[in-house]
């Protein structure tokens, strides 16, 4: 038996021992928790096995992990499709359209029935996507794609301009704050105004330096021409560091949540 196999065996035995210990521990403690039923118990056990299955990837790619990965993907996809059919296709497309055609047949239609009947166009249009799978009728899917791309581009232009312009205007900041410009500062008087002035100066300097870093139309031969770009890169590095710190926080909180689940819901440790 080589070292790798021995390590894997030890790991599997360790996890198995943990499970057995956990089961007996729970069995002993279940009577202390009147709110815990065997239903919630089984749920916690399934959850715990899933957590260990997914975490086993940290050791190496293995069958145990792959089984749970596929279960997760299958469940997620199944849940999405079922909800899409029930709450979107049936509730928002089929039912109003069917009711409209029924109303036309019975002669009880209203002005809304015309709009609801038009849903059939959306259905046909949507189905045209599937001609992607046919070489002969591929051109039909291109009509749908063209309409979607055109509408998407139109919507994006509108949304982007509304989203970005306020960002540009908010970049123009007062670097010298007078009493009338900042009446509601948390720290009043000269101290507060000076603090805000420094903050705004820093903001403007950083914006200019970072923009200059991405301005490639000028040659940066001299030290003076290089300095703002270097400063811009320095500020960018600081922001990337902050981004990475946030990334770490989210990842660790997810682990903490699972550990909390194992300790409190599975092992019932108070």
């Amino acid at each position: 038996m080589n070292k790798k196999t021995a390590l894997q065996l030890a790991l599997i035995l360790g996890v198995a021992a943990l499970f057995v210990a956990g089961f007996f521990y729970q069995w002993l403690r279940v009577h202390d928790h009147p709110d815990v039923t065997w239903k919630t118990h089984i749920g916690a056990w399934v959850g715990a096995i899933c957590v260990f299955g997914i975490l086993s990837y940290l050791h190496s790619e293995n069958v145990f992990y792959r089984v749970f990965e596929h279960i997760l993907l299958g469940l997620g996809l199944g849940f999405t499709i079922a909800n899409m059919i029930r709450q979107v296709l049936i509730a928002k497309w089929w039912e109003p359209m069917y009711a409209a055609f029924k109303a036309f047949y019975r002669g009880t239609y209203t002005s809304q029935s015309y709009w609801d009947a038009c849903l059939i166009v959306a259905g046909i249009f949507g189905l045209m996507w599937y001609f992607q799978y046919s070489k002969k009728y591929l051109w039909l899917s291109r009509i749908t794609i063209g309409v979607f791309a055109g509408a998407g581009a139109g919507l994006a232009i509108k949304a982007e301009s509304i989203k970005v312009f306020p960002q540009i205007t908010s970049t123009f900041k007062n670097v010298i704050i007078g009493t009338s410009q900042a009446p509601n500062l948390p720290v009043g008087g000269l101290e507060g105004r000076l603090g805000l002035s420094i903050q705004n100066v820093l903001f403007v300097v950083i914006v200019c330096c970072v923009l200059y870093y991405f301005f490639f139309s000028l040659r940066r031969d001299s030290a003076i021409a290089k300095a703002p770009a270097n400063l811009g890169r320095f500020f960018l590095m600081i922001s990337f560091g902050a981004f990475f710190g946030n990334t770490f926080m989210t990842r660790v909180v997810i682990l903490i949540d699972r550990v909390h689940f194992l300790l409190h819901d599975w092992l019932m440790v108070q």
């Binding site: 909800n83 899409m84 709450q87 979107v88 509730a91 928002k92 509408a151 919507l155 994006a156 949304a159």
Partner: peptide, 10 residues
């Protein structure tokens, strides 16, 4: 509310 699909802001 019931679910609705996303459509690029529309």
């Amino acid at each position: 509310f019931g679910m609705v699909p996303k459509a690029r802001g529309a």
